[in-house]
Computed example of a mutant assay.
Amino acid sequence: MRNLAAGNWKMNGLVADLAQVQALAKAHPAPDCDVLLCPPATLISRMADAVAGSAVMLGGQDCHANASGAHTGDISAQMLKDAGASHVILGHSERRADHGESDAIVLAKTQAALFAGLVAIVCVGETEAQRDAGQTLDVIGAQLAGSLLAQLDCAPNDLVIAYEPVWAIGTGRTPTLEEVGAVHRFMRATLLDRFGAAAREMRLLYGGSVKPANATEIFAVPEVNGALVGGASLKADDFGPIVAALSRG
């Protein structure tokens, strides 16, 4: 499988920042990994034009479970695809916490994304309190059980799982490599038990304060097939070395 370097711009980015994306695409014309940027919805269409013909793919940061309707302020999976997106992030901890998204809601959005032909990146992760209580694997297991389809009704590459420990997002803190490895091994085993051999082809990403300084060692951990990167994806000079490290992996 090809590794995946995914950047989540969150609520950041204006038209002027498209220059960063063009610089990234120019610096990595044929990377040995997939490269994905997920900007705010306001930039997807313009970014699609900016990276046309390059290796950079685009994704949304969320989608509604319904294809259309009276849902002011929301955006559907079909709309994302129409704007030029090929992927969408779902169940990010900031959506779960700030918007009260349950596993059932994430599951409905995942089904909508796959139906629309998008690759679904489903996020899971524990809080610091849950980690300190020794509940990490229980939390991850429950989120996987509730947020994913009962059967794998899509190509394995169309469903990506991103482990993002909530306490590591934007804090500069990361789990030890042993802890990252333990969670990724657990996720792989859980997915294999649920979906069978096809789960071997599903990509497992790590996210949470990934930066150029720690990317190489994180990507060397078995069962880590890429990264979901936050702040470091906003600048080509920061995200580029992460793409390069993953390409070497």
Results as ranks from 00 to 15, higher is better:
H87L: 13
Q143E: 14
M79K: 02
G13C: 02
R185F: 07
T127C: 04
A83V: 02
C154R: 08
D32N: 15
G208H: 09
V139Y: 06
I89D: 01
T190K: 13
Q143W: 03
R173C: 11
T216L: 09
V160Q: 08
L107H: 14
G7E: 01
V243Y: 02
Q61F: 06
V106E: 00
A108S: 14
C63K: 03
A162S: 13
P40K: 13
F115P: 00
A41N: 10
F186A: 13
V35L: 15
T136Q: 13
R194N: 06
K211M: 07
S76L: 06
G84M: 12
R203M: 03
D193C: 09
A97C: 11
I242G: 02
N214P: 02
G141V: 02
A41Q: 13
D82Q: 15
V243R: 00
A67W: 05
L118I: 09
M202E: 08
G231R: 12
M47F: 13
V183C: 15
V224L: 03
D98R: 13
V88P: 05
A112F: 08
L246I: 14
D49V: 14
P175M: 12
P29I: 04
R248T: 14
A27F: 05
V180T: 04
V160R: 08
R200N: 15
G172N: 05
A220H: 07
V139L: 05
L159P: 05
R248S: 12
M1E: 07
V119F: 07
P165L: 02
I218G: 04
P165K: 11
G59Y: 09
T171Y: 00
D238N: 12
V210N: 02
D237C: 11
L234F: 05
L177K: 12
D158L: 03
A112D: 02
L4W: 05
A155S: 15
H99G: 00
C33R: 01
D98E: 15
A199P: 08
I161N: 04
E178N: 12
Q22P: 00
N157Y: 09
I218K: 11
L137N: 01
G181T: 14
A6L: 13
R200M: 12
G60Y: 06
A108P: 08
A70W: 04
V122F: 04
R188A: 10
P175C: 12
D237K: 09
C154G: 01
A236F: 05
D82C: 06
A244G: 04
D62C: 12
G207F: 09
L149E: 13
H71P: 00
S86C: 06
V166T: 09
S76A: 10
D17F: 00
V124N: 09
S247V: 10
D49F: 11
A52D: 14
P156K: 03
A48Q: 14
G208P: 08
A120Y: 01
A182F: 00
D153G: 14
I121F: 08
G170C: 11
C33F: 10
A155V: 07
C154W: 03
L37H: 04
L191N: 08
A197K: 14
L36I: 13
K10D: 05
S76D: 03
G100D: 11
I140F: 14
S247W: 03
P175V: 14
